[in-house]
Design a protein around this nucleic acid. Structure first.
Lengths: 348, 348
DNA sequence: AACGTTCCCGACAACGATTGCATAAAGATA
DNA sequence: TATCTTTATGCAATCGTTGTCGGGAACGTT
């Protein structure tokens, strides 16, 4: 025996069956009436609609998912939401997804390959319609991505992509951003420009390094490997590497490649009592909201995180909705970066 | 006719029915075998288990949700994930939820009451087992929360709570944090201490104001209303209010109440060329990771975001799993705050 | 009068998994 | 031999919804 307390908000949510019973109709008729099917009498439709409205009927998305084998939800896997780039990208994703009637389910890999794989399994079991992924710093192989592809589940890589797999990709123009930053340092008179980079596995690392090298080459500065350091995500590790670098290589400028690195590096430099920008120019590849409040204010190359998220989501949803046609070309979309010069890199 | 490509990963996911067909058993037997029911022959069990393992069977959570009318997922609604306090709190929530076998689905209200309500509706339709909510800055009434309560859906408010409703609540010790911050300013010799507060609707705002007042009172400093400003979340608004305050009230210290306010306020002070801490002491109620990198480094009252998230999640899951017993006492848990003194509030 | 249309609507199966009940086969007891 | 237990399994209902099929009623056509 079921209980209904509809006057005070339903204890049990009302289903199509409940409506059918009350109106003495079959569930099929109610269903069709609600979807405005042509084969239902106008009067019946009105009755059903009105009653549904009155009892605040809303279809059970779980039942629909089961029936249709899709969920109108997309999964997002990012290394860390406590990172402005990713939280802004997620905002971009949600913006697009919500407009197109999809939900967004967020997962974090916390820079762990293992968690990335587990997340993907979970997310697939949950029957999302598609996936947006930014790879963890530990991710080296792409077998988990290949599995997704074999399951014909649409996905788009963004920001942290891999060149070991063919897929839709949305990235910032890392090469150009790094090139501009390096060129800026060179033009302001620096020559010994160090580059603090993310783990070498990441695509962003390679592209930014390439931009850095290209700028050096353009101005005929020899590439010096000892000025480039790859760092993981531990603060201590970064500080040690940077400490060594400062002591042994005496760079006159540093170009870092991410929020985390910029901050840890920045604080190590200050702890060593080295003056920015007088003794050392500094520019970061970051999305920090507080860049202008640091002392000195931090020059940065900014990635349009929100736009990257939007673009990736658009691409994914197009792919999902076009899925049946099947034959589709993988696309890589590159979004321009912007350089903001502040005090940390201007010393004259 | 279904296609199976199990050697290369299944195109169609395998169901209990598929297993049954292959092994010439009924779905019931397979189901029971997988759950290790005592009424299934040991040999049959082994067969089923092995085959299930081989084809990588995993039960369809959607089907289970439909049947059991629960999802082993909890919903989280926060104003903004691009806010360290909330992203850290979410990490705490996920930590606990994952350990206890639940998924976390994140929604943002973007400080909008309307979006908060819509999010709640969505989330309820999705059949989550419970809800964690931190209210938006615009939220004034709690009818949406009352609705949840009438639907008997367990929920816990955290950080941004409301005193208009009885429910489980987890908060930082805002009173004490504000008291300590204000007292610190007083003890260092300040007397005209301004307080930049969040929207006055929020519980945190009221509690922190009370702590501020209590500290003033303890040291027999008269409470001056004109030193207190309530701000929304727009940068321009904050800067204008602070600008006016600085000009007209000439405070010798400022105590702000959130990340956003601290940053906007900080930058306005610097733009006006006022020296921190010489002319003006500054302390914020924030969770900024970069507080120590600002110039001068920023004194703060820190809320244990991760722990708040953990506690709230524990409370919710307990509530969910105890749900059937029904009669439960609402609890309010207060987590201590910590004061970190840096240069922005030390001038001698 | 016999047949064909059109209009509305209901019965049933299906999606994937669980579970109460029924039951066949085999063994145990009287 | 007849009846009762036990063991192992299958059937069918269920969750909420939709799609396929089929059919009754009312009307028009020959």
């Amino acid at each position: 025996m079921k209980l209904y307390f509809n006057k005070i908000g339903s204890l049990e949510t009302v289903t199509i069956k409940d409506i059918a019973k009350v109106l003495n109709l079959s569930t099929s008729t109610v269903s069709r009436a609600l979807r405005g099917s042509y084969e239902i009498n106008a009067e019946t439709k009105r009755l059903v609609m009105e009653y549904a409205e009155k009892v605040n009927y809303s279809p059970n998305p779980i039942a629909l998912s089961l029936k249709e084998n899709k969920s109108r939800a997309i999964g997002v896997i990012v290394p860390e939401i406590a990172n402005h780039f990713f939280s802004q990208a997620i905002n971009g994703i949600e913006d697009v997804a919500n407009k197109r009637g999809y939900h967004v389910v967020i997962f974090q890999s916390h820079e762990s390959y293992q968690r990335e794989v587990i997340n993907i399994q979970h997310i697939i079991a949950r029957k999302v319609d598609g996936l947006l992924i930014s790879l963890s710093g530990q991710t080296n192989d792409v077998i988990h991505l290949q599995e997704i592809q074999q399951k014909k589940l649409p996905f788009v890589l963004f920001d942290r992509v891999s060149d070991k797999i063919e897929a839709h990709k949305v990235v910032a123009d890392n090469f150009d951003g790094a090139f501009k930053a390096t060129e800026h340092l060179i033009l302001s008179g620096r020559r010994r420009i160090a580059h603090i980079a993310s783990p070498s596995l990441l695509s962003i690392t390679k592209e930014r390094l390439a931009g850095y090298k290209a700028a050096l080459e353009k101005y005929s500065i020899l590439y010096d490997e000892s000025l480039v350091k790859y760092c993981g995500f531990g603060a201590e590790e970064v500080k040690k590497l940077v400490g060594d670098l400062l002591e042994n290589q005496k760079p006159d400028a540093i170009f870092t490649t991410s929020d985390r690195l910029a901050l840890d590096c920045f604080s190590e430099i200050k702890e060593q009592g080295i003056l920015i920008p007088e003794q050392l120019s500094f520019i970061g590849f970051t999305n920090l909201k507080v860049a202008h409040l640091l002392a000195p204010s931090l020059s940065t190359v900014v990635q349009p995180a929100f736009e990257i998220g939007q673009t990736a989501a658009e691409l994914l949803l197009d792919s999902i909705e076009r899925k049946s046609q099947n034959i589709e070309q993988f696309r890589t979309i590159k979004i321009p970066t912007e350089m903001v010069v502040r005090k940390s890199s201007v010393f004259n």
